[in-house]
Nucleic acid binder design. Structure first.
Length: 426
DNA sequence: TCTGGGGTCCTAGGACCC
DNA sequence: TCTGGGGTCCTAGGACCC
């Protein structure tokens, strides 16, 4: 069945206001109330309950811009607690595996399921999935079904937005599919972002239905080549994007963060870059890969228009690929020095590791001696200790002790599921 | 005071080679 | 000195996603 690429049944299961829903599982006081979860640094709204949406708060809204609303309607505000969300996510995903062997975990709150071979009515089956996930995890989901991923996405979108579908809509083999496509704005179609939707609207193309009827040739010309062509074909029911059950290894790994307050000194930037190097190399080792290239970037606050602006990026190919933290820190700090300029207020810094390869098939260098086996042992010990006693239990001194530049997280909830001391008491 | 962090894919164009 | 086609590799930048 799986090889029958032409005739696919995709379901997209998407958690409703995922971060808010996670918080509500453990804090019932948040239920039926307007709730917003903030991005890192308590900057933007990233997850918004239905009630808060009704009050006009949108994803990406900087929170300081809606202060009045928050006060007036007593909207509950929370910092994001990724440890909690990641744990809840894996609970949701493992529940989904009961319903299909072919699953692609697409993001922290979404999965594609192949439903080929399901004998019963698809709507009924979807309802079972929805109920089971809620029963096991307390997280509400919406489910969209279609013959392509793009159509499943569209169906999910409609199911989530319109109350009369109870969170489930199948467009599979639907006769009046065009009726539904007319309900969806182009900017809500998977793959159409801000720029493309503006361009399309200038040609009078407003809905998913309009998009579906474009010629693929035209789409290829106007929407980034093959990408545009695929969107049109998928809307017309030809599946071009297959389900990817096996996690592809990362092609690059990035760690960066805005600072809690402006940073001017090279020393503080060095601490931050050193910390990001530590985080990024931990991720490398977790995936058993090593990096060939290190890049570092810094930038001032682009929203402060009347302050002098500066940003730069430097990159280097390593003599030998590695995941050894001190080695990466060494190069990252050299790169940082090469782009640092005095007299600016920096807002953000980060590191990118790229040209990643499996740790077992690296090319030995003729000219550079390597202490690889020894280094690997040391890193393994560090990772083990941090796993056991909490991340950052030990860390390089170059990351700084006080971390004055650290991000804000003023409204954090408890680590209900991953820290014994914060487990819920009844 | 106050605007996230982590990714991918695709294309164009330059450098270089024969 | 200049001309020309055909090709590869690399990087920057744009667009998108959650």
């Amino acid at each position: 069945m799986k090889n029958d690429f032409k005739n696919r049944i995709f379901a997209l299961v998407d958690c409703n206001s995922f971060y808010v829903s996670c918080e509500r599982v453990f804090n019932p006081e948040l239920r039926n109330k307007p709730v917003v979860v903030l991005s890192n640094n308590d900057g933007c709204a990233v997850s918004i309950s239905k009630e808060a949406k009704k009050l006009g708060i949108k994803v990406g809204t900087p929170i300081f811009k809606v202060k009045d609303l928050i006060r007036r309607y007593d909207i509950k505000i929370l910092s994001s607690n990724y440890t909690l969300y990641a744990d809840m996510s894996s609970r949701v995903m493992s529940t989904l595996f009961q319903f299909s062997p072919n699953i692609e975990i697409y993001s922290i709150d979404e999965s594609f399921l192949l439903l080929n071979g399901i004998k019963e009515d698809l709507n009924k089956y979807a309802k079972k999935i929805k109920n089971k996930v809620y029963q096991y995890t307390g997280i509400p989901v919406s489910i969209g079904i279609g013959s392509t991923k793009t159509l499943a996405k569209v169906a999910n979108r409609i199911a989530k937005k319109n109350d009369n579908h109870n969170g489930i809509l199948s467009l599979y083999n639907k006769k009046d599919i065009d009726y539904y496509l007319k309900l969806v704005n182009i900017e809500d179609v998977w793959g159409i972002g801000r720029k493309y939707s503006k361009k399309l609207k200038s040609y009078g193309i407003e809905t998913a239905y309009d998009l579906k009827n474009l010629s693929t040739y035209w789409a290829e010309k106007k929407l980034g080549g093959i990408v545009g062509r695929r969107i049109i074909m998928e809307l017309n029911g030809t599946s071009c994007i297959d389900i990817e059950e096996i996690n592809q290894p990362n092609k690059e790994i990035l760690s960066s963060r805005s600072f809690g307050k402006p940073v001017k000194s090279l020393k503080e930037l060095e601490e931050a870059i050193s910390m990001h190097s530590t985080i990024a190399t931990e991720k490398l080792r977790k995936q058993k890969i090593i990096a060939n290239r290190v890049s570092v970037f810094i930038s001032t606050d682009r929203f402060k228009e009347n302050e002098p602006q500066y940003g730069n990026f430097a990159t280097i190919k390593l003599p030998i690929p590695t995941s050894y933290t001190p080695e990466i820190i060494k190069y990252a700090l050299i790169l940082l020095k090469s782009i640092y300029k005095e007299g600016y207020k920096y807002k953000k810094a980060g590191i990118v590791l790229s040209e990643l390869i499996n740790e077992n098939n690296y090319q030995l260098s003729l000219f550079h001696k390597s202490n690889r086996p020894l280094n690997l042992k040391l890193m393994k010990a560090v990772d083990r200790i941090n796993n056991k006693y909490g991340s950052n239990f030990i860390f390089p001194a170059s990351s700084g002790i006080n971390k004055n530049w650290c991000m804000r997280r003023n409204f954090i909830s408890s680590y209900y599921t991953t820290r014994w001391s914060e487990i819920l008491k009844i």
